[in-house]
Design a protein around this nucleic acid. Sequence first.
DNA 1: ATGGCTATGTAGCATAGA
Length: 265
Amino acid sequence: MRLASWNVNSLKVRLPHLLDWLELQRPDVVCLQETKLEDSNFPFDALQSAGYHVACAGQKTYNGVAILSREPLTDVVRGIPGWQDEQQRVLTACIGAVRVVCVYVPNGQSVESDKYRYKLEWLAALKTYLQDELRRHAQLAVLGDYNIAPTGSDVYDPQVWKDVVLVSAPEREAFSALLGLGLVDSFSLFEHAEPVFTWWDYRMGAFRRNMGLRIDHILLSQALAGDCSDWRVDLEPRRRERPSDHAPVLVDCNPDMQSAAPAAG
DNA sequence: ATGGCTATGTAGCATAGA
């Protein structure tokens, strides 16, 4: 099963890129972030014609998440249950025995900002939610734009990216806390000779100079991580005209599509 | 290198992203 995550930065603008890319990569499941579309404007027809079932949780102008899947989506849940949030940032669904959570973690703006406090509170709520989901689903995948570069190796210049939003200690601790639940950053299952990034600023020729950050992640429960055979970022869409500032991230894994029950213990 | 692009809502620029 091929799982992917892509912050498209407006699905309206990026739909042609997405449709081309779906045909090339043929992922089984795709989590989209920053769709910036109300559900009434979601391009259902184009994606259904491309062979995908769709679940979406959008809003006008900002945020918005969606899950595309070749197999039907069931048990769809919008947001973090029990945690009120105006912003559409979380969507969860089952594909067979695999539970998929699509997340768009708040940016935080700056460590002095109220938005930064919201980000940390949001991450704490996400942790509680994922802990709960892990109890219910042995095969859990949490894909999305985390807006956190976990280590100094995940930024092009650790001197520049120091104690600022996206790399601050509290944010990195919040990310580690998700791993502490028993989730694995699928990136870390493989060796990487060169730095790997998933986002590059539109300005300053950042992509051309590979001045990027690794902030889009695919976390897998132990049951899925054990059979994960590949992790990669696809740079091709970022090279196109009018690209998203994020590149899609993909993993290949081999879930057990029969058993939905969590492992004992 | 200091918000230098890009997208949205909306009709000039403001807000947000990371």
